[in-house]
């Protein structure tokens, strides 16, 4: 709707058209915001309600007497501090591993010529489609034989590589002009130095995107830690939440409080890196 060639038969000013459109779309906007947003509001209201209000289904639309103690109780009931620590260790290690393995592979695939390059790339991308549940059983047996069940090794190593990351870096490195590489090579740098000193710093947007998406995915992951941990001391936050449900299935106010504080880090990361996250998702969808 820039000042375009005036349409001959539609002498409506851009401003008025926008205005008319606005009222036409208001109902849709309201519906969408209520459908997607109200559950979040309701979870928070539930987390501040009394157990009686929950049990009798008489929760006020606005929490006039918020029970903040629910949060304290939910935190105290399970060992969430330990679970947060475990999850942080897992998420940071997986994220770092993926950044390293992906940038190395992405660099080789984008900037080096060798036989079988395309086949290798296809080999990586094809793994994106495999549901983890299909390969989980053999990996479980492998982890058990390595005596890695219930250790960080099992939580980290199987997910240390991610084809999405390889793809992301490859795309990014493809856009960097070859002159950078040539200049560095002339200075006597070997490919290892070229990658980490020249290319990797330039790929910061890819690194930020991959790190944020991986961290959030690890924070939220359930099935892998569910299979590969055994004792409560190794639980991650999502497992802790499920265990909490096992003990307090119908104590919804405490459950909702736990749900809220477990989701906070994800939203903080999103608000900090909104652009990188959205672009990362969009990149796979449309680049080109």
């Amino acid at each position: 709707m820039v000042e375009a060639t005036p349409a001959p038969k539609a002498p409506i000013s851009p401003k008025r058209r926008r205005h008319a459109g606005f009222w036409r779309y208001v109902p849709y906007m309201v519906i969408a915001i209520v459908v997607f947003g109200f559950p979040f509001y309701w979870i928070i209201v539930g987390s501040l309600s009394s157990n009686t209000a929950i049990a009798t289904g008489s929760i006020p639309l606005f929490p006039l007497h918020p029970r903040w103690a629910n949060y304290r109780d939910a935190w105290a009931y399970t060992n969430f501090a330990r679970q947060v620590l475990n999850t942080l260790i897992m998420a940071v290690a997986v994220t770092a591993s993926q950044v390293i393995t992906s940038s190395m592979a992405g660099f080789a695939l984008a900037r080096m010529r060798f036989p079988g390059r395309q086949a290798l790339f296809i080999g990586f991308v094809a793994t994106l489609i495999i549901p983890f549940q299909v390969i989980a059983l053999p990996i479980f047996v492998l982890m058990a034989n390595l005596h890695w069940i219930n250790t960080f090794g099992a939580l980290i190593v199987p997910t240390a590589v991610n084809a999405f990351g390889i793809f992301l870096y490859r795309q990014f490195f493809l856009t960097i002009p070859e002159s950078f590489e040539e200049a560095a090579m002339l200075d006597g740098a070997n490919p290892w130095q070229v990658l980490w000193r020249v290319y990797w710093p330039l790929a910061k947007p890819a690194t930020v995107t991959l790190s944020l998406l991986t961290f959030i995915a690890e924070w939220n992951s359930f099935y892998l830690p569910f299979l590969f941990t055994e004792t409560k001391s190794m639980y991650t936050v999502q497992l802790g939440l499920v265990a909490f449900q096992g003990e307090f299935a119908t104590v919804y106010n405490l459950l909702m409080a736990a749900t809220v504080f477990i989701s906070i880090p994800v939203f903080v990361l999103y608000l900090m890196g909104q652009r990188a996250i959205i672009e990362g998702i969009a990149t796979t969808g449309t680049k080109g």
């Binding site: 260790i89 290690a93 390595l146 890695w148 190593v157 240390a160």
Partner: peptide
């Protein structure tokens, strides 16, 4: 299971270097 996996895994680890192993657990 298998010679093959026992053989593979250390290499996988070695190639990952020190970065991953920081948190790897103690075996019982």
């Amino acid at each position: 299971m298998t010679q093959r996996t026992r053989w593979f895994a250390p290499i996988a680890l070695a190639s990952l270097g020190s970065m991953v192993l920081a948190g790897c657990g103690t075996s019982q």
